[in-house]
Nucleic acid binder design. Structure first.
Lengths: 162, 162
DNA sequence: GCGAGTTGCTTGATATTTGAAGCAATCGGT
DNA sequence: ACCGATTGCTTCAAATATCAAGCAACTCGC
């Protein structure tokens, strides 16, 4: 889903709406990259971006993560995490057990197979991203990274800070 | 789905992987904004980002668009567009008719109701985006817009230009 | 004009995602 | 220890999205 207004047919006039134009382009670019990545992960690994993302979270948490933490970090709903973890478990990529401190909570972690699988995907993922972002010079990437940092920072307070 | 690696636990080391870090942040920010927007459109208009996007395309194409064009512009599958258009048609937001030049093709356009609905959503959408991107100064927005322009440009040739 | 390839779109089976509701375990006083 | 919130997760139904066929309407070259 893309709103792209940067083409000739655009209805936006002049310098006004700059935020909007920026968002449209941001959205377009991200979605395009997302589709490239998701497609690659599906074709080459029978996986998906959503799975990869979840595995990535677990990869940097050797002690495992709770369902809720996973849903916060992957920015999806708890129901979706339940579903994804179940799928990944069937595929043997993750294991789960009841948390010792809280019998309601589940701790999910990567299995050896999951770790291997993730590592292979991560390699392919990185080289694809490298390729897709090649048009940006290192300093430009840095600039953009910084600018996005402040956006991200601001997004934290959105709900509470109208 | 977010891969965020910018937190303390990150496994990325130093200046290498800058592309990857940038992508992760890009993805995070975009997804967060997407969720804000989608939620707002749902709560306030009983619509969604996907619908809004489709309507936006039609809004700037007074003569209507073909299904295929819609799927290209919204970056989704043709099957999804068929579904979305059917839903929007049931809701009275769009109309469709067979193209005069090609009896296979359908031309979709906004109805008066669709136009009104879209206009209202667009207003709310713009002010939300304005608010979310407020942390960026105008010149920064411009910079980012330009940088994303080259990324977008590069994405066009990805498939053909390994 | 004809038949082999395209194209434009729909279908149907699946996969994924969301949102709300439900259940059990834990927590905070009391 | 007991009760009413709260929390952590799952479930279920419904909304979306994807992918692979499938079908009809075009196009071309002959």
């Amino acid at each position: 889903m893309i709103l792209r207004a940067e083409d000739p047919e655009t209805s936006l006039r002049g310098e006004e709406h700059e935020s909007l134009r920026l968002w449209l382009r941001l959205f377009t670019c991200t979605t395009m990259v997302e589709r490239e990545v998701d497609g690659m992960l599906k074709r080459a690994f029978g996986s998906s971006l959503a799975r990869f993302d979840l595995l990535a979270q677990l990869h940097r948490a050797p002690d495992g993560l709770r369902m809720t933490t996973l849903s916060e970090r992957t920015l999806t709903t708890n129901g979706n995490v339940t579903w994804l973890v179940a799928a990944l478990q069937r595929e043997g990529r993750v294991s789960r057990r009841v948390a010792s401190e809280d019998r309601r909570a589940a701790v999910v972690r990567l299995t050896a197979s999951g770790r291997r699988h993730f590592t292979a995907m991560a390699r392919a993922h990185e080289s694809l991203i490298e390729r897709l972002l090649r048009p940006l010079a290192p300093s430009e990437r840095q600039t953009m990274y910084t600018l996005l940092g402040s956006v991200k920072q601001g997004l934290r307070h959105v709900r509470t800070d109208p």
